[in-house]
Amino acid sequence: MINTNPIIVIEDDVDDLQLLTDSFADCNILNKMIHFTSGREAIDHISQSNEQPLFILCDVNLPKQNGIELKKEMDSIEKIKSMKIPFVFYSTHVSKYAVNQAFDNVCVQGYFQKNDTFTEFSNVIRTIYNYWALSKHVTQY
C-alpha cells in the first residue's frame, strides 16, 4: 500500500523550499507537500484539517516563533497532540548546543542537517521518507 498522507513542511527560505521540491521529485515522493512559512499557519492548518500528515519536516530557525517554540505549542494543543504526528527538525546549524536545545525542550523524532550538496540533501529526505512510510502508526488501526 502506498502511503498517500501529506507531508507538512515548515520553511521560511525560498531557496530551501525549491531544493525540497526538487528533492521530493528526485526521490519520487508522490505524497502531497503542504508548505508553510511560519508555525502559526501550520498550527492553523493542522487544527482544522481532517487529514493525518505522514510527518512534519520543520526548520529550526524561523522568524517570530522558532521551531522549538512551535513544537512546544503544538504539544500543548490537545487535538494536535493526539494525532501523534512524527516531527523532524532539519537545520543549517548543527552543534551540541543546538541539538541539546531541541531534544531537551521538546520531544522530536529526529534532527537532520541541511547538507551542502544536492545528492546528500536528497539522501536525507529519502531516508526520512522511507522510514516514516514503513513505520506503523496508530491511526492505521
Binding site: 530557525n61 546549524h93 550538496t117
Partner: peptide
C-alpha cells in the same frame, strides 16, 4: 548559523 546558511546554499 546565519553565516553558514548562504555558504551552504552556494555549495548546494
Amino acid at each position: 548559523h546565519d553565516l553558514k546558511e548562504p555558504l551552504r546554499k552556494i555549495q548546494m
